[in-house]
Nucleic acid binder design. Structure first.
Length: 336
DNA sequence: TAGGCCATCTGGTCCT
DNA sequence: AGGACCAGATGGCCTA
């Protein structure tokens, strides 16, 4: 709906196109500006010549007038420039160009956010974290890595997850927790056989790609059967299985750790799906190579994980003998 | 249908 | 003057 005043002949630039409904995307930009500009050039009472006759030179002459719109001598304050056709055209072009620049600027910002998504835990092309969650997770991730450097040893997984998930939404918390569980499990498998490979990225040494045989087969192209790709296991069960005691975190169904945000829930309400190999390993060998994926909805909360009966899952997986090497690795990352 | 997230447009402000 | 940056407004899309 057009709400601009039609009876005002003289308008400042700031009055142009102030608020009007947006009827579509940029293709209609021109149309909108045209609609907005029409009354300014064709409904004036003070316009003595047709707009077509006006030129840039005439516009400049008008600017030199010494009387305001009421015929009174102009005394002070900024001059109000009449909106001639030339000026309107110029404004239109400037606005269109500014919109294009702004779009490009926002695209650049989004590209940077995408790059950030790739280097924080739980990167997935198919299920992107929201902008705000990406920023929060990145902040937590930086802080958690800084803590590792400061303390000089690998944290236990629970603490690490708690630190990562501070302030995150419940779905994102579940997603991150799911990612870290898988990779911690892989970490343990790597430890049991041989020492860690220090030539690898420090991120990979902390969260190496998950190579569970159960998940090693990439999903077929096309339809993905979640019932086959979901590999549930329960965080608390794993804890109890390893420590042969009841996890303090799991004593109540809705345990909330003192270190965790109020919404923190470690009962494993998430599901997992193997990402396509192409999404990983290309550029980000230090990232999360397997991600929690929803079985329903974007950040699914509908399936409960259960630990396979033969699995063991220790929270505390740090190796003191590796702390110095790990510090070197992390330093290398931060200084590259 | 409400709410979250997002892209885009827009005008204001600051800086060069 | 013009570009960068910012925040508010708006409407579309998606999901619970």
């Amino acid at each position: 709906m057009l709400t601009l005043p039609f009876d005002e002949t003289v308008m400042t630039e700031s009055q142009i196109c102030r608020k009007f409904p947006r009827d579509s995307e940029e293709q209609k930009q021109g149309k909108r500006l045209e609609i907005c500009a029409k009354p300014l050039v064709s409904h004036g009472n003070n316009i003595k010549r047709s707009p077509e006759e006006e030129t840039e030179q005439e516009e400049e002459e008008e600017d030199k007038e010494e009387e305001d719109e009421n015929g009174m001598p102009r005394r002070r304050g900024p001059r109000k420039k009449k909106m001639t056709k030339v000026r309107i055209e110029r404004i239109k072009v400037r606005r269109v160009e500014a919109n294009a620049r702004e779009r490009g600027r926002m695209h650049g910002l989004n590209d940077a956010l995408d790059n950030l998504r790739k280097v924080v835990p739980c990167y997935s092309k198919t299920q992107k974290l929201s902008k705000i969650e990406t920023l929060r997770l990145a902040k937590n991730y930086i802080w958690a890595l800084s803590e590792i450097l400061r303390i000089g040893k690998r944290p236990d997984l629970l603490t690490f997850v708690q630190n990562l998930c501070k302030g995150l939404s419940q779905p994102t918390t579940n997603l991150v927790a799911g990612c870290l569980q898988l990779n911690a499990r892989s970490f343990l498998m790597g430890q049991s056989g041989e020492t860690m490979h220090h030539t690898r990225s420090p991120y990979a040494s902390i969260y190496p790609p998950y190579h569970s045989p159960e998940l090693s087969t990439p999903p077929a192209h096309g339809n993905v059967d979640n019932s086959k790709t979901v590999k549930p296991y329960n965080y608390c069960s794993a804890y109890e299985s390893f420590y042969e005691s009841t996890s303090p975190e799991c004593s109540s169904p809705q345990f909330e750790s003192p270190l965790s945000p109020p919404s923190m829930n470690y009962n494993g309400i998430f599901s997992l799906k193997q990402e396509e190999a192409l999404d990983y390993g290309k550029n980000y060998n230090y990232g999360m190579h397997y991600c929690a994926m929803p079985s329903r909805g974007p950040l699914g909360q509908s399936s409960m994980f259960r630990l396979p009966t033969d699995s063991h899952f220790p929270y505390d997986f740090h190796l003191r003998s590796q702390s110095l090497a790990m510090q070197d690795e992390l330093n290398a990352v931060f200084h590259n």
